[in-house]
């Protein structure tokens, strides 16, 4: 038989769930290395912020060749950023001798937090940082009486 639950139990449970989800987002990012030997790629740092009109995505791209930067939609919830580096970086160059691998590009997939219109996105690359301005998809307008 189901026990009757008080509203406080339900709220507590809810909060726990939210906290767990937040931990997953924060924690999940790190359980993978920030590099991938198979695709010779390093995962760059990125940041997402949402303004009233746009989703602004920035990506820190050290050593990127400006004309090699590609931004593609993976699906309507994710974009992929790929850039070739001006020089190859080996683990050895980073002071690590017990792993082997050489990296020639920066590559990451970025989740988009809200629906956007990628066809109207703008991109600029300045001081080693790529900045994408992606307009949010317009929703319904509610009539105010």
């Amino acid at each position: 038989m189901r026990r009757r639950r008080s509203i406080f139990d339900i709220i507590d449970e809810y909060i726990e769930e939210i906290e767990e989800a937040a931990e997953d987002i924060i924690g999940g990012m790190f359980e993978r290395p920030s590099w991938d030997v198979e695709s010779s790629s390093l995962c760059p740092l990125f940041n997402i912020s949402v303004t009233p009109d746009n989703v602004i995505v920035t990506v820190d791209l050290p050593y990127a060749k400006p004309d090699s930067i590609r931004v593609e939609a993976v699906d309507d919830k994710r974009i992929e950023v790929l850039a070739k580096m001006r020089r190859k970086v080996r683990f050895e160059d980073l002071g690590v001798s017990h792993m082997e691998g050489e990296f020639s590009c920066l590559r990451c997939q970025i989740p988009l937090p809200v629906p956007v219109d990628l066809s109207r996105a703008k991109a600029k690359f300045r001081r080693g940082i790529l900045e994408l301005t992606i307009p949010k998809r317009k929703g319904y307008r509610i009539k105010v009486e």
């Binding site: 990012m29 790190f30 390093l42 740092l45 820190d60 050290p62 980073l94 080693g128």
Partner: peptide, 14 residues
Amino acid sequence: GEEIRLKMRDIMRR
């Protein structure tokens, strides 16, 4: 600068 930005990715991420 670029070398530092690359090397500091992991600690920044954490």
